[in-house]
């Protein structure tokens, strides 16, 4: 299963980005192959609709779960219809490698 994690930077030491639609990077982590990829978020400066556009991006990568600090109100119905699970983690200090570690167990 592929999981998207919002990240403030493009290293495993970066923190979990608390915003979904306007996060700096998405980490796409594959729990089966343990492979991960950092994707810069092109929607960070979008005038509007950053959330749905970001769903578009991660959904096109077959992600089934998203971990972030907060999701906007336009995003939820789209994720529900796509059967993508939202995981809210209110911990700005959490590093990407910690979250990946948590997903392994």
């Amino acid at each position: 299963m592929k999981v998207a994690i919002t990240s403030t930077g493009n290293t495993l030491e970066s923190n979990l980005d608390q915003r979904f639609g306007r996060c700096a990077y998405f980490v796409v982590y594959d729990t089966d192959t343990k492979a991960f990829e950092f994707i810069p978020n092109p929607n960070i400066d979008a005038e509007q609709g950053a959330g749905p556009a970001s769903v578009n991006l991660v959904a096109s990568r077959d992600v089934q779960k998203i971990i972030s600090g907060e999701f906007g109100m336009k995003v939820k119905p789209i994720l529900d219809s796509l059967k993508i699970q939202m995981v809210v983690l209110k911990d700005p200090e959490k590093q990407i490698k910690d979250i990946i570690e948590m997903l392994k167990h």
Binding site: E47, Q48, G49, P52, N56, K74, I78
Partner: peptide
């Protein structure tokens, strides 16, 4: 669309309008 109002996933043949946007 300049306003991200069209949601599209061509691989899954999903397209919808986000009316609020």
């Amino acid at each position: 669309c300049n306003y991200n109002a069209i949601f599209l996933l061509p691989e899954s043949e999903i397209i919808s309008v986000i009316e609020d946007l």
